[in-house]
């Protein structure tokens, strides 16, 4: 690790977010003797998902004799910081950029400008709109993630003789990753839109407090809810709090989620409050992304298309016919602390 700099917000950038520059292993590695530089733009760094992604990107850049420049927004909606980071990275002549868009459409003009300069751009975790705006997308197969927990919930209900009264705690209207997870869950469980077994549905924005509030409202309307789908683990943890506050015996409820963060795996999946979660891997998004850009910069093929970065069903209560990994696997491969 030759040099590591943290740049404080500049006047322009300070208005819209935080830009952090991290330079890793700044040694010459390209065929032409120029150093290879990879840019990484994450959504924000309060969420350990993005911290893990940056840390792995740093490690892999070091292994590949590349420099990593990273930038991040202040929140999941901080688009301006990302656009500014794209412009700066383009101006500095990076070889490639990995970006997790905070807004799938708003970042596209800056991405197009980068690609016009010959910079390879890979979207990680979240697709752009249109998807063709980038060279490639490296992300979780969100539909598959939903399908895995849907199949698990259905199998558990069948095994335990549970009458399915399904509650859906979704993300928000129009956000594709949330829609795909929901579609996958319904398909995995064997539910059609409007199925009478779906007794209620709320939007949580993936937020713990909104997950708790939404679950509380649904329980008031339908106290017999027995299956709970949550779009992510913060929403799931909120739902657990509402169910426990409502006096529900958690062994009578099958609650499933998507994410695979350490907090939820250790505090909720391990004791069985969350029955199963679909674990996604920011490590793979970062690793494969940095490798692809470094390889392309050294004369290899330019990355294209969609790379599924993997998803595994984690549960402490496996059911026949549904492939899963145990909680220990989940702990070993979770992100965050």
């Amino acid at each position: 690790m030759a040099d590591r700099r943290h740049r404080r917000p500049t006047r322009a950038i300070g208005l819209v977010g935080v830009l952090v520059l991290v330079v890793v292993a700044g040694c010459s590695g390209g065929d032409d003797g120029d150093p290879i530089t990879v840019g990484l733009i994450t959504k924000q760094e309060d969420n350990p998902f993005w911290v893990t992604m940056r840390e792995i990107a740093e490690d892999v850049a070091g292994e590949r004799d590349a420099e990593l420049i990273s930038a991040t927004g202040e929140s999941d909606v901080d688009v301006e910081a990302q656009v500014e980071a794209l412009r700066e990275m383009t101006a500095s002549g990076v070889d490639g950029i990995l970006i997790a868009p905070n807004d799938s459409s708003a970042v596209v003009p800056a991405i197009e400008a980068a690609r016009e300069e010959g910079i390879v751009v890979i979207a990680v975790d979240t697709p752009t709109e249109p998807e063709s705006a980038v060279d490639a997308l490296y992300a979780t197969d969100n539909r598959l993630a939903g399908e895995l927990v849907g199949r698990y919930a259905q199998a558990r209900a069948e095994r335990d003789g549970i009458d399915p009264r399904v509650a859906l705690l979704d993300l928000a209207p129009g956000i594709r990753s949330g829609e795909l997870r929901r579609e996958g869950f319904l398909a995995g469980f064997g539910l059609e839109e409007g199925d009478p077994r779906i007794v209620g549905e709320v939007y949580t924005e993936g937020d713990r407090a909104k997950g708790e509030e939404g679950m509380r409202q649904l329980l008031e309307e339908h106290p017999d809810i027995s299956i709970v789908y949550t779009v992510n683990e913060p929403a799931a943890l909120g739902a657990v709090e509402a169910l426990q506050a409502g006096g529900r015996d958690m062994s009578d409820v099958v609650l499933v989620s998507v994410d695979g963060g350490c907090e939820a795996i250790k505090s909720a999946v391990r004791p069985g409050d969350i029955d199963a979660t679909a674990q996604q891997y920011p490590q793979n998004m970062a690793r494969e992304g940095v490798r692809a850009i470094a390889d392309a910069a050294r004369g290899g093929e330019t990355p294209t298309g969609f790379l599924n970065t993997g998803v595994s069903l984690i549960t402490g209560d496996a059911v026949d016919g549904v492939e899963s990994r145990d909680v220990a696997f989940g702990v070993r491969n979770c992100w965050g602390d």
Binding site: Q283, T309, G310, R332, N333
Partner: peptide, 8 residues
């Protein structure tokens, strides 16, 4: 080799 990378 990390287990996460083996997943894919």
């Amino acid at each position: 080799t990390s287990e996460a990378s083996k997943v894919i």
